[in-house]
């Protein structure tokens, strides 16, 4: 691939996004060393958008601001106002997307619930839109496959158990873990890779970066595929640098799931 073609793909990706074939073309170029992935175009687009945006910003709905704060409190495990650090909550926990129940109950109840969640484990009391509940509902619909995790070859794998649930039609799914070692996100993060039987020799699809806060609790993580997945044949979790990578060296495969 020529340098000009790489540049075109990177610019188009930043402005409009690429289709699956173009993403694969770019991924192959990066993997082979022909191209270098840089975020300069994304940065230029972001600033240009701000400049071209000539209208005053719309008001953010107060309910949305509350949900953003709840998500942040769950993620960082703190209570706004006190600055007191609470016990870790699995990072996959997010605020319900549509219910106003939390708003009505007020912030003190929400903060108390966070503490209880940390004590009991989020899965047991998760809200209607918790990943655990969403996973159960996906399984109940009967359209998803469920595959058990097996230990990967890495000596950093711990003793992972759990499963992956994947709905090909919805292009969504969930991973459930117990026994995968907790990580410090500043040191390393876990990254999911989905091997697509319809992509031939192309690299696996990035399924998202995630953290494990506590190896002894069940943690349910939504799958976040960066490309359309035709036929998922294997799911693999690797250890990567913070923020993840575009193409994995697969040096540390900690767990695998396949039929």
């Amino acid at each position: 691939m020529s340098a000009d073609r790489c540049t075109e793909l990177l610019i188009d990706r930043a402005i409009w996004g690429l289709d699956a074939a173009e993403e694969a073309e770019l991924a192959r170029a990066i993997e082979s060393g022909e191209s270098e992935f840089d975020l300069g175009w994304e940065r230029a687009v972001a600033v240009a958008t701000l400049v071209l945006e000539d209208e005053p910003a719309a008001i953010v709905p107060p309910e949305l601001v509350e949900r953003l704060e709840r998500d942040a409190a769950n993620y960082f495990s703190f209570e706004f106002g006190s600055q007191r650090k609470l016990r870790a909550v699995p990072p996959a926990a997010v605020a319900p997307r549509t219910s106003n129940a939390w708003s009505r109950l007020g912030w003190f109840v929400a903060a108390a619930a966070i503490i209880v969640a940390a004590w009991l484990g989020w899965d047991r009391i998760g809200g209607d839109a918790s990943p655990a509940r969403a996973r159960s509902e996906m399984l109940a619909r009967g359209d998803a496959i469920r595959l058990d995790w097996s230990r990967g070859p890495s000596d950093r794998a711990g003793d992972p158990t759990g499963d992956v649930v994947w709905d090909a039609h919805a292009q969504a799914g969930f991973m459930r873990f117990r026994g995968l070692p907790a990580n410090d996100p500043a040191e390393f993060q876990y990254q999911l890779w989905i091997f697509d039987g319809e992509r031939g020799t192309s690299p696996p699809v990035d399924g998202g970066v995630f953290d494990i806060a506590n190896a002894t609790l069940d943690t349910v993580v939504p799958i976040d595929p960066k490309l359309l997945v035709g036929k998922a044949v294997t799911f693999a979790v690797t250890i990567e640098r913070p923020g993840g990578v575009v193409v994995s060296e697969q040096e540390h495969i900690v767990t695998l799931a396949k039929p």
Partner: peptide, 29 residues
Amino acid sequence: AVQDIFLDLWKSASRYDPSAGSEIAFVMT
């Protein structure tokens, strides 16, 4: 979408490098 974006931002905040651009550009990227 905004909830997803801010969750991404919390996860990615440690990767922000002031020498590579402004915070608003990082967020909007």
